[in-house]
Amino acid sequence: MSRVSPTKQASAEPLLRVNGLKKYYAASGRSAFRRSVVKAVDGVSFDLREGETYGLVGESGCGKSTLGKSLLRLTEPTEGEALYRGVDLFKQSRKSLQAYRRELQIVFQDPFSSLNPRQIVGRALEEPLVIHGIGSPKERTDRAMEMLITVGLRMEHYYRLPHELSGGQRQRIGLARALILNPRIVICDEPVSALDVIIQSQIVNLMRKLQAELKLTYLFIAHDIAVVRHISDRIGIMYLGKLVEEAPTDKLFANPRHPYTQVLLSAVPVPDPSGRRERIALEGDLPSPLDPPSGCAFHTRCPFATERCRTETPIRREVDEGHFAACHLI
């Protein structure tokens, strides 16, 4: 079951280039904002390089999961480009898009709700192979058994139902299902947030191992920046639908430039009990995406905001090699 590439890739180009991605929802209901739109993702651009893990971090409601689903067109984007090896996924018909879905897969946040409760694990794993017309029934069963071993489970799990498995086992099934088609990119939508800390560590270590063995590229979406640090080569920080900072992981932790990133990092526990980190407290609540602030969206909570921040939207620019931020104060 070797991978078949729909197109050829120039080595100099990123595996996936996202340009100006927007996803807006029309507000509904009887409210003052019924004629407004929710800008869940508002003009996000970034590159995903082959073999890397790009971590996407932000508070709940910032639009990071919507971004991931929009890339796969599980929800249709409003505007923008997603150039996978030079081909815009957003312009493909449903039929032509299916060929690319073999190479772009997703692991969902809740492993239980993403599985059919009445379907044994083996059938859930074989379903992608059936949809894409890959292999005979026996070959599909053999492939499912192989994937169970690959993700650290036993062949007997093939006959189990989802409710008979632990949360960690179910997430391993979700990972196996995403990998069974030999994808090149896996979008991981908060894959460990529903698990306890020990199981989180096991799943993240498994993902790193599989990445090296299978030459995978990850878009790793999470709200826990400490987990993202452990697995990511580069990190993007989202706030209210916008990408406010992006940098290689080491640079971001050593020298965060955007005030929102500084706030997130100040909340990360220090492993050394004798060590101290000054906590930066935010004032106010996250603004409603139905009525976002003018200027810089973060100015209502930023301790350093100026009048310019309140009236002028900052432009994302390179502040150091490979380090980008959107802030007037830099």
Rank of each mutant, 00 (worst) to 15 (best):
144 A>S: 11
223 H>T: 02
212 A>F: 00
267 A>T: 13
207 M>K: 04
93 S>M: 13
261 T>Y: 04
109 Q>I: 08
191 P>H: 07
185 I>D: 05
63 G>Q: 04
112 F>D: 00
21 L>G: 11
266 S>L: 11
227 V>I: 15
313 T>P: 08
289 P>A: 10
73 R>A: 02
64 K>D: 08
251 K>L: 14
179 L>E: 12
173 I>G: 00
324 F>V: 10
91 K>I: 09
308 R>V: 14
196 D>S: 06
292 P>S: 09
231 I>E: 00
221 I>H: 09
161 L>V: 04
161 L>N: 02
23 K>H: 13
30 R>V: 05
177 R>P: 14
143 R>H: 09
323 H>Y: 10
269 P>N: 05
63 G>E: 06
154 R>F: 01
115 L>F: 07
281 A>M: 07
29 G>C: 13
158 Y>L: 09
226 A>N: 10
9 Q>C: 14
285 D>C: 07
269 P>C: 10
97 L>N: 01
172 R>Q: 07
290 L>D: 06
65 S>C: 06
70 S>W: 05
174 G>T: 01
119 Q>S: 05
62 C>K: 03
146 E>H: 12
120 I>W: 03
27 A>H: 03
141 T>N: 11
278 E>A: 14
85 R>T: 03
309 C>P: 06
184 R>Q: 14
300 T>D: 05
140 R>Y: 08
40 A>K: 12
25 Y>F: 15
213 E>M: 00
125 L>R: 01
299 H>Q: 13
80 G>I: 06
269 P>D: 13
198 I>T: 15
73 R>T: 08
34 R>Y: 14
246 E>A: 13
134 I>E: 04
222 A>K: 03
296 C>A: 12
260 Y>E: 00
323 H>A: 07
13 E>I: 00
226 A>T: 01
116 N>D: 15
28 S>T: 14
85 R>N: 10
176 A>C: 09
286 L>G: 02
130 V>E: 08
32 A>G: 12
265 L>K: 12
303 P>F: 08
124 A>W: 04
245 E>P: 08
261 T>Q: 06
263 V>A: 11
240 L>Y: 05
126 E>Q: 15
75 T>L: 01
90 F>N: 06
127 E>K: 09
